[in-house]
Simulated assay, not measured.
Amino acid sequence: MTLSPEAIETLKNVTTATLTTILLKKGLRNVWIRGAMPLEEDQERLVGPAFTLRFVPAREDLATPAAWSKPISTRTAIEDMPEGCIAVIDAMGITDAGVFGDILCARMRKRGVSALITDGVVRDGKGVLGTGLPVWARGVAAPPSVAGLTFVGWGETIGCGGVAVIPGDIVVADSDGAVVIPQALLEEVLAEAPAQEEMEGWIVEEVERGEKLPGLYPMNEETKARYAAYLKEKQGRTS
């Protein structure tokens, strides 16, 4: 899926926390990838379509260094990644074998991949950070992937951090982790997210002014009327 620059810009200005609230209202509770947190502090919010990769438990006849040269390999998968995508890797939460290291991340960066997200870990942590590729993971580990994982393919539905991820789903990742937006709901989210973000910002301002939470969050009818008046006044100032 190709995201428009306008869609990317809109989502870059919406927190993952706000997105989970919007998706919850639509009945989706399980959209936050567990364990995937940014390796670098102050990582900027990133948006992109999911490019999925999947590992299964290591099997000694398959998970060998020789597997890295086979047609179905992480190396081949990287060459299939389109510019702007976010690689989402199902590592089953295993934390004692790094899915990717600095060389693979450097190649991803060269191909214009936006980020790597996994419920596992990466290796060569300092080198990975040095590539400039943003990474969300459970951490780092020295052993290579074949020490605990077998790579089996890419471009299929996966489970990452307990979340179903379909190729082309939209991923938004920031300091609170990574959230998956189903393709079918993208337009609705784009339409609602800025308004939700603005409303929550107004509520925070009201709290700072000393307002009590009951009736404010969530809003009762009186608060809704005050907020509507605020929006009308704001529109008048900008028109």
Rank of each mutant, 00 (worst) to 15 (best):
R237A: 13
P143M: 09
D119N: 13
D124R: 05
F55D: 01
A50G: 05
G48I: 01
G132E: 06
G148D: 04
N30H: 13
V152K: 12
Q235M: 14
A173Q: 01
L116F: 14
A193W: 00
S114C: 06
R109S: 10
R107E: 06
D61G: 04
C85Q: 06
E198W: 07
E79D: 07
P38I: 14
I203V: 15
I94W: 08
V135P: 01
Y217R: 07
K70L: 10
F55K: 08
G132F: 10
G139W: 13
D174I: 10
G27N: 04
V146M: 11
T64Y: 07
P182R: 02
D102V: 09
E208F: 12
A87C: 13
A178W: 08
G236D: 13
A91W: 14
L39Y: 09
A193Q: 00
D124C: 03
E40D: 09
P218Y: 08
C160A: 15
V165C: 08
K70E: 05
R138K: 15
V172Y: 01
V165D: 04
T52K: 01
Q43A: 14
K25A: 05
G93N: 11
A141N: 11
V152Q: 09
D176H: 11
G168K: 06
L216P: 14
R75G: 08
R123F: 08
G120N: 08
F100G: 00
S175Y: 07
G159P: 00
E221L: 11
S114Q: 11
A63W: 05
G98S: 01
V122N: 00
M199R: 07
P194Q: 06
E187P: 02
R109D: 04
A91F: 14
V121T: 12
A67K: 13
Q43K: 14
I170W: 03
P5T: 03
D102S: 12
L190R: 02
V179E: 04
S175T: 13
D119W: 15
L133F: 13
G168H: 08
W154G: 06
T223Q: 12
P65G: 04
G98T: 02
G153N: 02
P194I: 07
G48W: 00
S239H: 11
A77Q: 10
K126I: 08
